[in-house]
């Protein structure tokens, strides 16, 4: 769906793309042109880890405009081993069992359709198996 996700050949698997700064060594989710930490332009694309730790979450009962998924849904912020936190929906997890500190893993789902009715894949989190 976005520059931040690289899909495998058949589209069934994917990996989050990030950036590492060759000057200060910080990692980022996504592709900033200049380093948010030190403003260096010497950045390199990296694949980010597929597992991380849930640092905070919320259950959304009133969704924002454009949301095409179920309601309520859980949003979770997962800290990756490289440092960045990535926010997305948490699936395959009952509301009553979600806990800060849980190990989570990346998964892919169809997030909805665009204006031309094409299905758009998005990244989500689920409890690590």
């Amino acid at each position: 769906m976005s520059k931040n996700l690289r899909l495998s050949g058949d589209g069934s698997e994917g990996v989050l793309l990030g950036t590492v700064c060759n000057n200060c060594g910080e990692h980022f989710f996504g592709a900033p042109t200049f380093c948010p930490n030190c403003t260096s332009g010497d950045l390199k694309e990296v694949e980010l880890g597929k597992q991380g730790v849930l640092r905070t979450y919320t259950v959304i009962w009133v969704p924002p405009p454009g949301w095409q998924g179920d309601v309520p849904y859980i949003l979770g912020s997962v800290e990756l081993p490289e440092g960045p936190e990535v926010l997305s929906e948490v699936i395959d997890c009952p509301q009553e069992s979600i806990k800060v500190g849980m190990k989570m893993e990346l998964t892919l789902r169809v997030g909805g359709t665009d204006q031309e009715d094409n299905e758009i894949m998005v990244y989500k989190w689920r409890p690590a198996s």
Binding site: M1, S2, R55, T56, Y57, T58, I60, V62, P63, P64, P65, G66, W67, Q68, G69, Y73, L75, S77, L87, S88, E89, V100, G111, G112, D114, Q115, I120, V122
Partner: peptide, 27 residues
Amino acid sequence: SVTAEHSPQRLLGTDHMMASYALRARR
């Protein structure tokens, strides 16, 4: 919402002013 209409971020369900406050509240 903070993002523009038709922003792909909207399919992630993360563009929600009160969600960002709620995430901070839980932390």
